[in-house]
Amino acid sequence: MIDTTPSFSLRRFAQALPIDEALPALTSALAAGSSAVLVAPPGAGKTTRVPLALDGAPWLGGRKILVLEPRRLAARNAAARMAATLGEEIGESVGLRARLETRVSKKTRIEVLTEGVFTRLILDDPSLDGIGAVLFDEFHERSLEADLGLALALDAQTSLRPDLRLVVMSATLAGEPVAELLGGAPLVASEGRSFPVETRYLGKDPTRRLEDRMADAIARALRAETGSILAFLPGQGEIRRTAERLHERLDPNDAIIAPLYGALDRREQDQAIAPAPPGARKVVLATAIAETSLTIEGIRVVIDCGVAR
């Protein structure tokens, strides 16, 4: 039986985010029905604001909220930001489950987990006992695990748990087909904030190595622009060689060089995502791991090498 309680008092946050305007419509949709689709542009705050806003909803009945992320780094970053918003550490009200890393406690009400972990969880417990809502974040990436997870969650909702809430969240996905898949679920949209973007094409020089051209582009941007830089490279090797070239030609005071890729040590990943110290600039050299699900504060310039692996 679905709880039709119209609404509840939304949590107040110290910092306003664009997604806040969409929260009343989302909470009302979930009070009246079992599913919803949320479309919000990158940086609107859906990943870290929506779970906190839904926490405490009457229809949860004291059960947990699960937030699914496509990658470990994104899951850890989301959990850390939500925990910091509450003035806590990961493992208290907000927990984390990922491969080789579990930080939850009896106090945990929101769990952030990777899609692969969720698949194993729901196969072991098809009724999702103790879970009140499952939020599929960054669903536009359309991985096999995300599609399988949603199919299994829909099956659980239909046959075992009609009180289970499902929310599909995306930055770029056309929401109507997903809403139809969810049985005509309400579609909630957030306009977000847009900023002017200038695109500059630097051309190609096939006679030079990719790392040399990227180091040139980064050095040029550091001289011409303010703020930190996010540079995309195809893999760990290219990142390492580009970092070597930048260390050779840049003064250590010019910028902090911060690699970011999946195999990197967790502490180094966290340092790459963290804001640059006051008065300092940062150059984040990243693989496609930073293309979605992550918000790196202070980035003003993005340099894409145009090559993917």
Score class of each variant (00 low, 15 high):
A290L: 15
A286H: 04
A31L: 05
T47I: 04
A32W: 04
G62F: 02
G184M: 02
L148S: 05
I239K: 09
L68P: 06
E145H: 10
K107M: 11
E145A: 14
A258K: 01
A29E: 00
L152K: 04
A219Q: 13
V283D: 03
S93N: 10
I296W: 01
Q157N: 13
G130M: 12
L152A: 01
E145V: 13
L100R: 08
A80R: 15
T102K: 07
R12D: 08
Q157V: 08
F118Y: 14
T295K: 12
Q15I: 13
I218Q: 00
A276H: 06
P51K: 02
G298I: 03
D270P: 09
P6I: 01
E115M: 01
R12K: 15
D55R: 11
F136W: 07
G227C: 10
D125A: 10
A133F: 00
L173E: 06
H140Q: 13
D129P: 10
T242A: 00
A263K: 13
I256R: 12
A151I: 12
R63G: 00
R220T: 11
R200K: 12
D265Q: 10
L17F: 14
F13C: 10
D304W: 06
A40Y: 03
G227Q: 09
Q271K: 14
F195P: 07
T292D: 13
A290R: 15
F136T: 07
R49D: 02
E211D: 15
G33C: 04
I131V: 14
A255I: 05
A156H: 08
D216N: 12
A80P: 11
E138M: 07
A156Y: 02
L144S: 11
A133R: 08
S293Y: 00
F8Y: 07
R109E: 05
A243M: 14
V301K: 08
R209H: 10
E111K: 09
R72A: 01
V94F: 04
P275W: 03
E248P: 04
D147P: 09
A80E: 15
R11E: 00
R76E: 02
S170E: 06
S293H: 07
K204G: 00
L60N: 04
L260N: 08
T102E: 14
I122H: 04
P275G: 07
E238N: 11
K282S: 01
A53W: 00
S9E: 15
G116L: 00
A290D: 14
A171Y: 03
L152I: 02
N253G: 08
A32N: 10
L285P: 13
D212I: 05
T4A: 13
E244L: 15
